[in-house]
């Protein structure tokens, strides 16, 4: 079983966010990057399947500065990495296109992506890639079984319901968080993974479907804010609860 996993080096939405001076991009200062949370689960799932059935896990990243994330995946147990040094944009098409080009000589059984990227929240790249490759897809997968020639996937629906579907191999799966418990990798582990192959594949993107007009902090209707030290805040909360007859 050869599995290609897409892993994005992505800024954490919990880091400090501001708009750059062009008004059209995120300011890099204050951003903390790591492997996209959903991709951690995707990489773990691929490695578990390899450990069970043998084969190979190839991790693919698009971005000029994605080495740390690719190394982390190699440390988790991926066999080799492909880096596509293209400046990532908002356009999921561009990313899917360059990935398609970069993997065209790889004979794979499955492609795993995360359900979505934590910064762009598009939930597109995996599905676009499936469509470009004319492969069947299942998104938001929370349970996966791989048997000869097919994959049985449980997809997450609304309200805690799941849908079980069967896909022939080759296919594309996008992984929802919680599918497994991703293994921890130490700094030492990442250092040791340095000997694994990381190949750069240059691809020139040609598709552009979107234009950014403006980026801004969303206006939020604000709650009534309670000020003070923790004890004063607690006191005020107690008063509110009493007023409402909740205590």
């Amino acid at each position: 079983m050869k599995i290609i996993v897409l892993a994005k080096h992505a800024p954490d939405p919990e880091s400090e966010i501001s708009v750059a001076s062009d008004g059209k991009s995120i300011s890099q200062s204050g951003l903390v990057y790591d492997i996209n949370d959903w991709d951690r689960y995707a990489v773990e799932e691929a490695i578990r399947i390899k450990e069970d059935k043998g084969g190979e896990v190839v991790v693919v990243g698009v971005g000029t500065n994605c080495d740390d994330t690719l190394r982390k995946c190699l440390a988790m147990g991926a066999d080799r990495a492909i880096k596509i040094p293209v400046d990532t944009s908002l356009d999921a098409y561009t990313i899917a296109e360059v990935i398609k080009e970069a993997i065209k000589d790889e004979q794979f059984d499955m492609i795993f992506a995360g359900l979505m990227s934590q910064d762009l929240n598009n939930a597109q790249v995996g599905v676009l890639l499936a469509a470009m490759l004319d492969l069947p897809v299942a998104t938001a997968v929370t349970e996966l079984k791989v048997e000869d020639g097919k994959a049985i996937a449980r997809r997450e629906l609304e309200g805690g319901y799941l849908e079980e579907v069967e896909l022939p191999i080759p296919c594309v799966v996008t992984v929802q968080s919680g599918i497994n418990e991703p293994r921890y990798v130490s700094i030492m582990g990442i250092k040791r993974a340095k000997s694994k192959e990381m190949k750069e594949v240059s691809v020139a993107p040609s598709i552009s479907t979107l234009e950014i007009e403006k980026m801004y902090l969303p206006p939020v209707k604000k709650a009534e804010m309670i000020e003070g030290d923790p004890s004063q805040i607690a006191q005020k909360l107690i008063e509110i609860l009493k007023e409402r007859g909740l205590i």
Binding site: P11, P13, I17, V19, I26, L90, Q118, D119, L120, N121, N122, A123, Q124, L210, E211, I212, E213, K214, M215, Y216, L217, P218
Partner: peptide, 28 residues
Amino acid sequence: TDVVAVDVSDGVKVSRYLMQGKLMVDLK
């Protein structure tokens, strides 16, 4: 995807959130 506003007065423009709701973008 996950669009919250649409304006068709001059082509198709949309607004959507990024960064899990902490940032917003207008796209054409």
